Amino acid sequence: MSVLFCCEAIQPFRPKRLTHEDKFTSFMKWGNFPKASSTATTGGENDQESLDLAELEPPYAVQLVCQINYGPLESKRYFIPVEGKDEAFVEVSEEDLVKANFQKLNSYKNFRCEAHNKFFELNLYQKDPVNLHHWRANLARPAGSIDL
């Protein structure tokens, strides 16, 4: 078990209202200090404790990046919302998100703790996101394979 945030004094850094604001708000409400979490997927020998993201079908995932302000990265952790559990979010591994085909959205929030000189970044991931701004659904797909 490890604590998500260093203390209660974290503040938004250059806050903006986003389209996915409710997802960030629910994660921050759940993750208030002194919330601790352990990874739900263990892999290896204890596969019975492993979560199947295809079975759970989470609508999104949140990446929590912690680093020293203008310094080295301390951790990258991933969380999915789970209904019907006593917790609103469960920690999963990066491998689980890759297997479930989650991709990073261009939606993030930053937080800072001046007391501990820490910086926190929250990023959103979704399964098979479609960028409505661009005419191609997936930039990895070659333009020659698209019938117009």
Score class of each variant (00 low, 15 high):
P72L: 05
L53E: 04
D147I: 14
S50A: 09
Y70P: 04
A100G: 06
E49Y: 13
L148G: 05
T25I: 10
L139T: 14
L139H: 07
N117Y: 11
F102V: 02
L4K: 02
V130F: 08
P81M: 05
F33H: 15
T42F: 11
L139R: 09
Q11I: 10
A100D: 10
N101Y: 14
K35P: 12
S38T: 13
F119Q: 15
P142Q: 09
T39I: 14
N46F: 09
L53I: 02
R141D: 11
N69A: 09
F119G: 03
P15R: 05
L132E: 13
P58T: 07
L105C: 10
K104T: 05
V82C: 07
L139E: 14
R141A: 03
L105K: 06
G31H: 00
K104F: 10
C66I: 14
F27K: 00
G71Y: 04
E91N: 02
P12E: 09
C6H: 11
A143I: 15
S93W: 00
N46S: 10
R77F: 01
L132D: 14
F33K: 01
C6I: 03
L139A: 08
F33Y: 08
E121W: 08
R17E: 15
F102W: 05
F13Q: 15
D147Q: 14
K99C: 07
Q67N: 12
S107R: 10
P12T: 04
E83N: 12
N69K: 12
C113P: 02
D96V: 00
P58S: 09
H116M: 08
K23V: 09
F120G: 01
V82Y: 05
F102Y: 13
N117S: 09
T19G: 13
G71P: 01
M1I: 05
S38G: 07
P59C: 06
L64W: 05
L105F: 11
E83M: 09
P34D: 03
L64Y: 02
A36F: 05
S145E: 13
V92T: 02
S145I: 14
T41A: 03
Y60F: 08
F102I: 00
